[in-house]
């Protein structure tokens, strides 16, 4: 049995819904990892949240196109709007915080710690 690139590719094909669901799962886990791991800047945490949103909408679109129902794409559109609103407010809060404290390192943000 000869191992070749085309044989490997053929065993993984054709591209199905499972591929997209696995990809979005991976993306979601990477976003979660970003939330856990990142102890430096709030701004990178916001980016990790954006990745989570992307994973969610990728799932919506994959199922929408697999089932031939456009409703999933409508909801992906609403996810996009929500993500835009979230990032706007998040960055505004960040700017205000930086103006008051001159730092947005996560270790410095501990005012609410008792």
């Amino acid at each position: 049995m000869s191992f070749s690139f085309s044989a490997m590719l053929e065993s993984l094909l054709p591209v199905s819904l499972t591929h997209y669901v696995l990809l979005s799962s991976t993306l979601f886990v990477i976003g979660m990892l970003g939330l856990f791991l990142n102890r430096r800047h709030v701004i990178v945490i916001l980016m990790a949240v954006e990745l989570l949103f992307l994973a969610a909408s990728m799932n919506f679109i994959a199922f929408s196109s697999a089932s031939g129902d456009l409703t999933g794409q409508v909801f992906a559109l609403f996810i996009l709007a929500t993500a835009a609103a979230e990032v706007t407010i998040g960055l505004a809060i960040l700017v205000v915080y930086y103006r008051n404290r001159a730092s947005i390192a996560i270790d410095d943000i501990s005012d609410l710690k008792g």
Partner: peptide, 11 residues
């Protein structure tokens, strides 16, 4: 590309 870039964003 997606997975590589997302991982890089995090690290």
């Amino acid at each position: 590309v997606i997975v590589a870039c997302a991982l890089s964003v995090v690290v």
